[in-house]
Each structure stands twice: as C-alpha cells, then as structure tokens.
Design a protein around this nucleic acid. Structure first.
Lengths: 196, 196
DNA sequence: GACGGCGAGTAGACACTGTCTACGCCACCC
DNA sequence: GGGTGGCGTAGACAGTGTCTACTCGCCGTC
C-alpha cells in the first residue's frame, strides 16, 4: 500500500504534517498541501470543506503525537521506579522536548485563530493526560488545597516556557540558551525542591 | 491638527491599532489598514517597505502601552507603600489585565512569524522593565541563587497563564473562568505564600 | 516668475491565495 | 450493458501583498 493508494484524506494530513515540520505554519497553504499530496487544489474540498478544517486535522495529529510522547515518557519514568516528583520531571522535560523538536507543529496546535471552532474540541483530547498530571501533583502535595489549580499553574508555566524558548526570548532575558536551570527553577517553585 | 493632517506613517499605525483592537490580528491586512487610513493600497509602501514592517510598528505601539501599563501599576503599588511582594502582585495583575483587555494586540505582539526580523528588536524594549522585575524578585528572595532565573520562571508562568486564558483553555482545565485562584497559586509558588 | 526636480500618493498589473461551480471520468450495481 | 454516484480536475472569482509606471503639487534655483 503506497502513499498513492491511501485515502486522500490521510495523505493530505500526512503531507501537512511533513510540510509543517520542514517549513513551519506558513508552508501550510491549501494549494501547497494539495500539490504536495499530488492532487489538484480542489481535491481537498471533498474531505475538508474549508482550509481550517484541514489544518485542524493536522493539528489533531500533533496532539496525538504529543499525548503519545508524554505518555511514553511517564511510563518510562514510572517503570524505572520513579516517584511522583521524578515522573513530573520526566513529563515536563518531554513537553519542552516536543515543543523544541516540532516547533512548527507546536505553533499550529496553539494557533487558535487557524483552528477556530475545532480548537476547544482538539484540546479536549489532552484532558485525560491532564488528569494524570493532577494525580501526580496531588501526590507531591498531599496537603494542598486544590490539586487541579496547582496543576494548571505548573502546566501554564511549562507552556509559557516552551513558547518563550521557541521565540528565542529566553536568551534575551537570561542571556543563555540553556533552559535546564530555568526548568529546574520552575519545577522547584511548583513542586518544592527535588530530592537529589 | 486632525487625523488627516498627521503624518501618514502615524495615521497608518493608529489605524492598525484601532483595527487590531476591534477585529483582531486577522483584520490587519495591508489594504485594510490603508483603507481605514483613507489612502490607496500603495501608499503605505512609502513608509513601510513591507507589510510585516507595518505590523511591527503596530506591535511596537503595543509594547509601549504594555510597558506604560506595568510601570503605572508598579508606581501605584510602590506609592501606597507596598513592599516588593505586593508590587509583584500588582505587576502580575497588570500583565494579565493587559492581555485580557487587548487580546488582539497581545496576540500580535507575540506572533513572531508576523514580526520576523524585528521581533527580537521589539522585545528588547521590555528589558528595562524586566530588570525592575528582577530587582523585586531578589528582594523577595534575598538568599536565592539566581534572581534572573527566578524572574524568568515567574515571567514565563504569567505569560503562559495569559495565553491559556485568552484561548479559553483555562475553563477547559479548571472548570472555572476565574483566574484569580490560579494567579494566586502561581504567585505563591514563585514568591512564597503572601502575607495576608 | 518660469522651470526642473522631487517627494507623496494613485492606479494598475502580477502572481498567488481560498472558495465555489461545472465538468469528466471511472467503478460499481441493478 | 447502461445509468448512477463518488472522486478528482480545471477554471472562474474576489481578495491579498508586492512591484512599477504615472500624476500632481510643492520647493528651490536660475
């Protein structure tokens, strides 16, 4: 089963994933994706009534990969006997790693203007993952008031960190490209100093 | 001196600020801005060789307003005898408030793909403000290792929080639209529990 | 005071985009 | 074997950002 044989729908999404990986969000023109999939510019319309729905499908692929990446990192950390704190460490590093490795996809996933309508639906897929986050955080803070709030605080920090890094704002602020000390400070602030 | 008399350069930027306020980033087409300023679509080219440079000028206006907002909030808090911790509280609230009050401008300011080239130059204007942040943080954490890192950690958290709120992801995660408890958790995590 | 030059804005062309519509083609089924 | 329906093509359309004449009015100079 070659690329040519697969459903055009899947081929279009695959072409989009490849384009966003190599050329960023701006490479995701409707006609560009169609060209890359080897069809005419009108063909996508049969499967995605509008350009944005095609972009949403590509972003969904991204959310799936992110979820897999995080779940994999967590499973690895848990498997090697890591406690809640070290699992959160692994999850945080995986999140930042994904953003660094796939900057175009990461940007697309959070460009709500491109995904309007399906954006909330999309992010909903990451809710289960968020719940495991909450569980781990409440394990680290057994006497905390509201684990969900504490988790959202940590989550938003990781997200902001990922954004600032991909924009190169970090070097501007801290003078260094290295996120490691910053990530450590973030984790220490939200989870308390790590046992080392 | 009416709008018609002012420099076209300033009028174009003013038109852009108004458009982004009312219609978001997508309303900032080159021709749209020119129409709104009452000139033909070729006129902006005399002052801004490219569309992006016009957008960068509009974003610069935004950075200026943000800086003013933050400086004003800090001056107010310092004037009423606030300590470092309460000044940081005020700054954080002002940052989130700006993002909430000017979502379109806030988005434009951090759309590095639209401002490529001048983006780093732009954000450089907020460095002085960041330094006062650093001073306040080191006042709160007199025995901290690296105030700049701690400040960047807090800053990135505020930024992530602002983004998630404007995207409506917060309600998805915490079930509530209210950022107040989340903001409190963030400040407590980075600065220690507030004295109340 | 007439004239040349020049800066500022106009208007049209160009390639490109996303959307819409009419059309052809091929496989499948009664 | 002839319809039929789904799939993809191709062209039109309005809109975009950029580029290139061109016009017009103002200024300084001879």
């Amino acid at each position: 089963m070659t690329d040519q044989d697969r459903d055009l729908r899947a081929r279009l999404v695959a072409a989009g994933v490849e384009l966003v990986t190599t050329g960023g969000v701006q490479a995701l023109g409707l006609r560009e994706i169609a060209r890359h999939a080897g069809v005419s510019h009108g063909a996508p319309r049969r499967y995605f009534p509008t350009h944005r729905e095609l972009l949403a499908a590509i972003a969904q692929q991204g959310f799936g990969r992110l979820t897999d990446t995080l779940a994999g990192a967590d499973a690895l950390a848990a498997g090697t006997g890591g406690d809640a704190r070290s699992r959160l460490d692994a999850l945080a590093r995986a999140y930042l790693g994904f953003a660094a490795a796939n900057p175009g996809m990461f940007e697309l996933m959070f460009r709500h203007d491109l995904l309007e309508g399906s954006g909330a639906e999309l992010r909903r897929t990451s809710v289960p993952l968020f719940l495991t986050f909450v569980g781990l955080v409440s394990e680290v803070h057994p006497d905390g008031d509201d684990p969900a709030t504490a988790t959202a605080a940590l989550w938003s920090n990781l997200h902001g960190l990922a954004q600032l890094r991909t924009w190169g704002s970090l070097r501007l602020i801290t003078g260094s490209e290295d996120v490691e000390p910053l990530l450590r400070a973030v984790l220490d602030a939200h989870l308390g100093p790590a046992a080392r």
